[in-house]
């Protein structure tokens, strides 16, 4: 029997603990390529979230019908259908945004976050949980892209969502809106996330050690060290 996690955890794990970009390092191609501005990052994140949620719901609903031998093919066809829908809707209703994101909307098909969640989660869980998981992963993906896009836009073109927030004296660092800036920003962001996560882990460990000492269960500390 699998250990059941609470529903809120099912949602939150995608936002932080298993953030697709910052922790799993999935879907890096769109992450690096489109995040020249906050609006691009947000739009890409929302489009991918939509596809992820719809595909997860559908696949987890019909998971028992799909024979395991053809599951990847089925996933891809379903994902591609939703991606094409998103692409057509954006072209029809938001032509400017669609032009800015260029070929990266059709490429959501091969975004490994989406296929990864189908294989790892939606095909093994009920639709309710699959929905929460997809929303959480999508939110984590969107937040990561928004942060990246925001940082790059502020430093690279002085604006945030198109509004100028840096003074005129600030000379924009063009490298930030070039591909090199994407790698630098993502690398530094990952470093910061790791520093934070490490510190949190160490503090938890120390407080646990202190707690065991207080209640006089020293033998448990050794057990912790072994772990």
């Amino acid at each position: 029997m699998k250990k059941q996690v609470t529903l809120s955890k099912e949602f939150l794990k995608g936002v932080w603990d298993n953030n697709p970009v910052l922790k799993q390092l999935l879907g890096l191609c769109p992450t690096l390529a489109v995040t020249v501005s906050a609006i691009n990052g947000l739009a890409m994140g929302l489009a991918a979230t939509f596809v992820l949620v719809m595909a997860s719901l559908l696949i987890s609903t019909i998971r028992k019908i799909i024979p395991p031998q053809v599951r990847i093919a089925s996933f891809i066809v379903i994902i591609a259908t939703f991606v094409t829908i998103v692409d057509l809707v954006m072209k029809a209703k938001f032509p400017d945004l669609s032009k800015a994101l260029g070929p990266f909307i059709p490429l959501i098909v091969v975004n490994c976050v989406i296929l990864g969640r189908q294989e790892a989660f939606a095909s093994k869980n009920n639709p309710g949980r699959a929905f929460l998981d997809a929303i959480g992963m999508g939110a984590g993906f969107t937040i990561a892209l928004l942060v990246l896009g925001g940082i790059r836009e502020i430093i690279g073109s002085r604006t945030f969502f198109g509004l100028q927030i840096m003074p005129d004296q600030f000379e924009p660092w063009l490298i930030m809106i070039l591909p090199a800036g994407a790698f630098l920003t993502l690398g530094l962001l990952l470093g910061a996330v790791n520093v934070y996560a490490d510190r949190k882990k160490r503090l938890e460990h120390e407080s646990l050690v202190a707690h065991y000492k207080r209640v006089g269960r020293e033998e448990l500390i050794e057990e912790l060290e072994v772990k």
Partner: peptide
């Protein structure tokens, strides 16, 4: 190289 990419005009 960073400066070259960041401030190509200057």
């Amino acid at each position: 190289a960073f400066l070259q990419a960041a401030f190509p005009v200057q």
